[in-house]
Design a protein around this nucleic acid. Structure first.
Lengths: 230, 230
DNA sequence: TCTAGTACACTTGTATACAAGGTGCAACTG
DNA sequence: CAGTTGCACCTTGTATACAAGTGTACTAGA
């Protein structure tokens, strides 16, 4: 039984604690679907992989469990969480609510400088697509949405969005298709166009339309489930 | 130097892990202002208090650090987080955004049964005030707001609100005054009255007015700070 | 062949020991 | 007396050992 764990980088530096670095590596691996739902994350296996003791590994896994990315069963094992559609819908609700409210703060204070900064991120996403760099695409997608929190003078709110987005990104990685990437760019630009045109409600509508595209995946997931049940 | 730690209950059962119980006790103590901002939470001190080893204590403190209720400084110590007004404003933004969006989901589906259940919670709050039971008052306040998430068919969203509300409740415990309690009841009832009257926008306005009352405390806090600086 | 029972390997939870670094005080030096 | 240096004690971070429970595979018996 080959484990996706073996594929992970194992070089830890000393600038931050071991548990912090292990948490980051594992989180990224789960969100980017390098570690599959249901896959075992034995503490000892991670220890061997990173050449550290169980203590920092445990701390990392416990944080992942709080994020809902790992499920810990005492005396049984720890596993990458299954894709739970209800939990993901909750995360989507959180994200949509917060980003919508952030946009309402930003719209009245929108400036050309903001527009330029965000359009440069969209351009970066375009390059990522051209290079087939999916990770880079998602990174810049995060930056795009985070910038709204920053512009709304509420950068701390991004922490909450970030946590919710982890589950969503993981879900999209499994259910999404490549054709969607180009569409995302257009939707991002539509939001910016509306903001440039001083059309707050239009921008909000464009944002909601953009975020709610995930509902298509919900439906696909549901039909998959029904199909599997038959 | 007397520590608030000494006042905490120390009896742990075996139905859940020690770290889980220690987390709950410490979290409640911090939110209810039994442990003051800046107060030291030495791991060894907690160990002695609960008669357990450092391992579960560390796990609990790390969770509290993630919640923003405790600040950990390596090789220096762990301390109850200071009241950070910016962080609290972020939490308020998160809470108001989510509860507002939840209310929009609930309003169209509002039923007399929902109204009755929520009014019984308000009645419970009234009893708590009469008995001078501040903890009970806040518990029922949590239940009141949680019920909206439940009625909106998004109970999982409460987790996020709950985390944000912790900082807010702690802040209110320090800055709030007793006279506010009775007003809270009226504001809760105003929300329910609007919902009963099928007035969604009115209910939303009442909710926002209710939640934004905390801005008064923000202003008071700011003037306190300015005064202290002079 | 099938079943019941047992031993074992593996898991997470907890306890303890050691390592590395920061603070403050005391003693020493100029 | 001022400044500095070193030690004692504290902190958190990590490593290791033990405890308790679960699933599985193998063995003995009918």
């Amino acid at each position: 039984m080959s484990s996706g764990l073996a594929e992970l980088d194992v070089f830890l530096n000393r600038r931050s604690s071991a548990s912090e670095q292990i948490y980051s590596v594992l989180r990224e691996a789960i969100v980017r679907a390098k570690l599959l739902p249901g896959e075992s994350i034995s503490e000892n296996a991670v220890c061997r992989q990173f050449n550290v003791s169980r203590t920092p590994v445990r701390a990392a896994i416990q944080r992942l469990a709080e994020d809902g990315l790992v499920s810990v069963f005492p005396q049984l094992g720890s596993f990458v969480s299954q894709i739970d559609i209800v939990s993901i819908q909750d995360s989507h609700f959180v994200r949509r609510s917060l980003e919508t409210c952030l946009l309402r703060e930003v719209a009245p204070r929108w400036t050309p400088a903001m527009s330029a900064e965000m359009r440069s991120l969209v351009a970066a996403q375009e390059r990522s697509i051209a290079e087939g760099d999916i990770d880079g695409f998602h990174d810049n997608d995060e930056n795009f949405h985070q910038l709204f929190a920053s512009f709304a003078q509420r950068p701390g709110v991004w922490t909450t969005i970030h946590a919710a987005k982890a589950k969503l990104t993981r879900f999209i990685r499994f259910s999404g298709n490549a054709a969607r990437f180009a569409v995302v760019l257009q939707e991002h630009l539509a939001i910016l166009d509306a903001l440039d045109a001083n059309d707050g409600p239009g921008a909000e509508a464009a944002l909601v339309a953009h975020l709610d595209k995930i509902f298509v995946l919900f439906d696909a997931h549901a039909s998959d489930t029904r199909h599997a049940a038959v």
